[in-house]
């Protein structure tokens, strides 16, 4: 007979710390604990239909301490930052800001290997860290991503159209104070690393 393992997450010892952790890592005041599970966020979300869990469901899971399930969710990566959820939320929960927090946590804790979105973000900021400006918002990075197995079809004509209208450039602009910016970002990262080691959740 096959043995079935039933896992009821954290009913005995809820990991309340997870909720506090997520809340603390969100800039400003998240009001996460005020969620009444009404679903306004999930209903308003333009990509809600594509998410494995709606934001509301994620918040319930965070309360239940279901760390793995929450950080594996594709939902934050489908967030388009339209902020509808945030202005409509009857409890003024900072839903969009919380999605960013979950993205950071998922990346830091290695949950995101399969996602295209973190790659995109990484690539984007890679240029920023190198030049101080984005290497043509969206499109240049799109070139880069075309090398990933996501999609290739049609990229060519689009890029040609853009070049034809002088809306794409081959050469990135580099700011003058790149050394200073570099120092600033390195310092910021160093503080973040320290916080990771010492458990300074608020800084993450």
């Amino acid at each position: 007979m096959e043995e079935i393992t039933v896992s009821i997450p954290d009913t005995v010892k809820p990991k309340l710390r997870f909720l506090e952790e997520v809340s603390a890592a969100t800039p400003g005041v998240s009001r996460l604990e005020m969620c009444i599970q009404c679903g306004t966020c999930g209903g308003s979300c333009p990509s809600g239909a594509d998410m494995d869990h709606t934001p509301r469901a994620l918040f319930a899971m965070i309360r239940a301490g279901m760390r793995d399930d929450v950080l594996q969710s594709n939902a934050p990566w489908y967030c388009v930052s339209c902020y509808y959820c945030m202005v409509r939320c009857p409890q003024e929960v900072h839903v969009t800001d919380l999605m960013y927090t979950l993205k950071r946590m998922a990346i830091r804790e290695g949950y995101t290997d399969h996602e295209a979105a973190p790659d995109f973000s990484q690539t984007f900021i890679g240029y920023v860290e190198q030049y101080g400006r984005s290497f043509e918002l969206g499109l240049a990075t799109r070139f880069h991503l075309a090398h990933s197995p996501l999609r290739k079809v049609g990229i060519g004509t689009l890029a040609l159209d853009m070049f034809a209208r002088d809306r794409l450039s081959f050469v990135p602009t580099r700011i003058k104070g790149m050394d200073g910016l570099h120092a600033i970002l390195e310092k910021a990262k160093a503080i973040t690393r320290d916080a990771e080691l010492t458990g300074g959740t608020q800084l993450l």
């Binding site: 973190p118 990484q122 101080g132 400006r133 910021a188």
Partner: peptide
């Protein structure tokens, strides 16, 4: 001036 980070940087590192 430098890039504002668009909607990307905040997804990777808050302080940066």
């Amino acid at each position: 001036w430098n890039c504002c980070g668009a909607t990307e940087y905040i997804a990777i590192n808050k302080l940066a």
